[in-house]
Design a protein around this nucleic acid. Sequence first.
DNA 1: CCCCATGTTCGACA
DNA 2: GTGTCGAACATGGG
Length: 264
Amino acid sequence: MPELAEVHYYASRWAPAVGKPIQLVDIRSTSRVFRDMDARTLGAALTGSRLRDWQTHGKQMLFGFTRGHWLWLHLGMTGRLFIEGRHYIPTRHDALVIRTANYSLVFSDPRMFGRLYLEQHPGIPESWRALPPQILDDGFSRDSVNAFLERRARSPIKAVLLMQEQFPGVGNWMADEILWRAGIHPARTPGELTAGRRRRLFDATIEVAREAMEVIAPDFADPPDTWLFNHRWREGGLCPKTGKPLRRETIGGRTTCYSPARQR
DNA sequence: CCCCATGTTCGACA
DNA sequence: GTGTCGAACATGGG
């Protein structure tokens, strides 16, 4: 489910508990989301400490706690975070519930493709600092994108946009939205793109990321019908720009929706 | 019953 | 070594 803006939305669900002492941690240790860690360490690490701050990087989330603990979380395909009252009773797919006096912070993930782990480090973990520049940061430059496109010159551009090491936070719907706005057919390869088209791709990437953050991140609002987003899954969907039929096919291993009339 | 799913990783293969 | 592709992970929804 979650891409850049949705991830930010979910991370922000826990924000009301910042500064509140953690009283109890409930863990469903059989959940596969704990495959990278020993789930039993969570309770001892977090009980008695407080959530200090949180941030996201693409699809990754980092929650900082007092006493130097960092909870690193990835939502996978179906993970989500939400907040409930103190008496919330966990349901089947809730892997983790962190309790404060007034809140229950929940990480739930039915398909269990998500993952989390705990780090102890005085400052932000090195591996977090080593993540590539985010799309909306200054470090995300035309030069870095062009260099990456050069290296991936023969892969379908759809697959290239999904590569997190260069486009952190871009997922299936964002990649389709970017290519649709840039007028580029998803099966084209970077090697085929002129400098002008690569520039349009770069601009569309930043534009989609910025608008997604503005529209979706604050309260999970639906994007307007002028985006491809609301038309992409409907059978017989029409391109909001041309009014012509959209097409769906598997490109780069993923179901891809595009407008043949305007994407070449 | 069948097929599909907003993600990532791993192994096979060129 | 490099790069690409499909399967696998586990569950639910249409």
